[in-house]
């Protein structure tokens, strides 16, 4: 069999097998929000001010340890239950980093090498980019892929059965985007030579966008990307590695189709544009000022 096809299959299945449990957790959390969170309570608890709502969404991930595969369905569920859209957007963007598991993995990877500075930069910049982006995205969400949950259970149904039905509908809705994204990420990895970014990273101005592009292509789960970033730190400027660790968990080839499915194309395009500009600008400034 053609070695390239074999390589594609191994990488595609690797991404799928690794991501599908997290998507499943996300679908279960999403269904839990849908069934057990009272929209009136939610509306009362979340600030209506767009910036504060986005800030709350950016921080709520501390209580929901989900990576990018799980954060998208959960974010959509928050919005469906009446949370302001900026809350959902910021959660989707920030939760893959602002959650206990990733905070621990980033600390374990970097504190012994760079001190706490790099960890705080990752957390702070992720929150900043997520909040600003969410603040300026459209308030109306078009959700082309959303199944109608209104029919999925009856009042006399056991809660656990209703939960499973909701979760399965959410899961089915998102898994097609995961399959498409995983195939795309695997194809790019197989067909684009792997060493291209090494040449680009020699240039201090190109290093940041090159590492952001690498993060999009590699589509690594945020729970472990800190260790990949640590390895890159040997050859690549710290501000470019920071860009890799901030941008990758927000935007990658497997999450983009999921964003389109959850929020629609218009929101997704603006989301990608804003996060790209903000992350690149911030990391270039941080590098120029020698802050990392």
């Amino acid at each position: 069999m053609n070695a390239t096809i074999e390589q594609f299959v191994v990488i595609f299945l690797g991404i799928f097998y690794e991501a599908v449990p997290f998507l499943t957790i996300g679908a279960l959390v999403s269904a839990g929000i849908h069934l057990f969170v009272d929209p009136v309570w939610l509306m009362a608890k979340i600030p209506r001010n767009r910036t504060l709502a986005a800030l709350a969404g950016g921080l709520i991930g501390l209580f929901f340890p989900v990576c990018e595969c799980g954060s998208v369905p959960a974010a959509r569920s928050f919005i469906n239950r009446g949370a302001p859209a900026p809350f959902g957007y910021a959660f989707a963007l920030a939760a893959p980093v602002i959650n206990p598991i990733v905070l621990i993995s980033t600390s374990v990877a970097f504190v012994g090498v760079t001190g706490w500075g790099f960890v705080w930069w990752r957390i702070g910049l992720t929150l900043l980019v997520a909040v600003i982006t969410a603040r300026f995205l459209p308030l109306q969400v078009s959700q082309p892929g959303v199944a109608d949950h209104a029919h999925t259970h009856t009042d006399d149904e056991l809660p656990v059965l209703a939960w499973l039905r909701h979760a399965s509908t959410d899961w089915l809705d998102m898994v097609r985007f995961l399959v498409f994204g995983a195939a795309l990420a695997a194809a790019v990895q197989v067909f684009v030579p792997n060493g291209w970014y090494v040449a680009l990273t020699d240039n201090p101005w190109l290093a940041v966008p090159a590492m952001m592009a690498l993060a999009v292509i590699m589509a690594i789960c945020s729970t472990v990307d800190a260790f990949v970033g640590l390895a890159l730190l040997r050859t690549i400027a710290p501000n470019a590695v920071l860009a890799f660790l901030v941008f990758g968990p927000m935007i990658d080839l497997k999450s983009i189709p999921m964003f389109i499915g959850a929020f629609g194309t218009r929101v997704t395009v603006r989301m990608i544009a804003l996060t790209t500009i903000l992350t690149a600008t911030a990391c270039l400034i941080i590098g120029a000022l020698g802050w990392v």
Binding site: F16, L161, R165, T169, R176
Partner: peptide
Amino acid sequence: VVFLFGAVSWSSNAPLPRLSTIFLCIP
């Protein structure tokens, strides 16, 4: 959990997301 999804989905009355089964067949 995916097995349980399979068990409950045959009796569900929720509309199936478009193309989801086909995409799921790929992996």
